[in-house]
Design a protein around this nucleic acid. Structure first.
Lengths: 158, 158
DNA sequence: GTTGAAACGTTCATTTT
DNA sequence: AAAATGAACGTTTCAAC
């Protein structure tokens, strides 16, 4: 059941402010969107209930955390592997930051963060040893040029 | 100048709480890590100053925002293209959520969010028309299996 | 890092548009 | 139906320890 596509312009404005600073007070958000604090709170509560807002998180500098190596690891899987099996396996790795099933010859695209090349190598070896994985192909990130938080009114400015 | 790699265990614990709920009060965070609210605040302030914390943001459900299509678009670029040129070009697209220069035959890996296939197609065409792009290869996401916020003590539990 | 106190934000019931 | 107001309660923030 997909959530409703139509997003209220006021809700979108509130989400844009929260995307920039998720710890802004309701009064501060209200000042930016011309609403009182209680009005902002009620809309935010409603967006959480509707599932539009999944939560609030901190944005960290990966380098400052000691993660100096990032890679896209493409997994070629045996034909009969279900997405659930893939997820259950890949979720065990703390180094996996994202994983998606994809079209094309590759079956699963996995994004990995590791301390260094040596660490990355070990993770790729473990992924390659998963029973349903027939082959892997890794692409190491040289430099992260753009890394944007999800913002309403980007792709879907209707 | 890369930030210090060694992360205080208490700071790591605070960041884990904030990764789960960035709007938690300092008192709530303090209760989880056995610290008073002012102590938590001082540490968070310091983490911001050090650049470990880049900010706080809201996590949204892409589907609820009307973004039903996601893809990895690989860009093959002319040999003399600088990363700065690539970033300047790719940053103009609101549909681009991430972009990284990578090793291998591909030069730039771009992650795109679009309303639908038709919208994605238009974005890929515009990217392909950039002067420094010689060829593109797109991989459409079928389903996002894992999507984790950055959490300390994942890859770098030392 | 903690405590205590003043300023400020949150939250709810109520009133207004 | 949705927003503003005002008051009670909890949080932030800073000085002092």
């Amino acid at each position: 059941m997909p959530a409703d596509d139509a997003l209220d312009p006021l809700d979108a404005a509130i989400l844009r402010v929260l995307a920039t600073d998720a710890r802004a007070t309701f009064a501060q958000v209200g000042a930016r969107v011309s609403l009182s604090a209680p009005a902002v709170k009620r809309r935010v509560d409603r967006l959480r209930e509707r599932g539009v807002i999944r939560g609030f998180t901190v944005r960290l500098d990966p380098g400052a955390m000691g993660w100096h190596t990032e890679a896209f690891v493409e997994l070629f899987c045996q034909g009969s592997t279900s997405p659930a099996t893939m997820r259950d396996a890949v979720e065990q790795y703390p180094e996996v930051v994202a994983a998606s099933t994809v079209t094309g010859d590759v079956d699963l695209m996995v994004q990995v963060r590791a301390r260094d090349m040596r660490h990355l190598e070990r993770v790729v070896e473990r992924l390659a040893a998963e029973p349903f994985v027939s082959r892997t192909r890794s692409t190491v990130v040289l430099s992260a040029l753009v890394r944007r938080p999800d913002v309403p009114g980007g792709p879907a400015q209707e």
